[in-house]
Design a protein around this nucleic acid. Sequence first.
DNA 1: TTATCATATGAACAGATGCTCATATGATCA
DNA 2: TGATCATATGAGCATCTGTTCATATGATAA
Lengths: 121, 121
Amino acid sequence: MQETNDMIDLCDCRCIHAKRITVAANDALPEEENQRMAQLFKAMGDGNRLKILWALDHGEMCVCDLAAFLQVSESAVSHQLRMLRQLQLVRNRREGPILYYRLADQHVRTLIQTALEHTRE
Amino acid sequence: MQETNDMIDLCDCRCIHAKRITVAANDALPEEENQRMAQLFKAMGDGNRLKILWALDHGEMCVCDLAAFLQVSESAVSHQLRMLRQLQLVRNRREGPILYYRLADQHVRTLIQTALEHTRE
DNA sequence: TTATCATATGAACAGATGCTCATATGATCA
DNA sequence: TGATCATATGAGCATCTGTTCATATGATAA
């Protein structure tokens, strides 16, 4: 699986103990990827944005539906949707003057489902 | 699966359109559960905390190892680990004076893996 | 074109967040 | 017991976040 491959030592502290964790260099997490993942989780880490995603998991909805559902202003929802759009968590389609939002892909559903299972344990 | 069961209308806005999304009442997401899920995602939504989780996915590590890995103070790591502990994302065990931290369960791994797949698309 | 509906955007501000520094705790060893 | 190692905790502060308010845009209908 991992042939001749440099190993990175994750442990480099002053502690007097033997345990060492090493990771194959090509398995290391680049800073940029770490930041993009963090942004993804951060986007889901707000009560209202999570409610939006949870609602959209049941079907596509327009902005003012979401505002009514969350009981916040449409402006606030619009700001949140922009973030979710930029991070590819939701997509939209226009039908006349109305924009219908939906979840972007299956990953989002998996994340919600896994988190739900975790909190219910 | 869901017998005689009240339905909740997620759409209740002023828009002039027909589409309606309804959810079975017993499928609704309680406010408390929503908040706990949001806290879980928020905890993973910080670059340094995510690095901690990513590192622990490769094996258990002590606090000063993690501090060296992240290149921040041990105090900062300790603060972060407390949050991760309280949200059941990590656990620890004592071996003499050293506390070894590890991921709490498989859900955390699934969340990291799914997020990674999503950002790599 | 003008008016209106649905949504987006920018500025601004209260509240939350994550770090550092100083200090406390708890285990180990002399 | 006292000293030291590994970690935890609290206060304080600069930065980030999420909302509201005001305004802009883009599609539709009169």
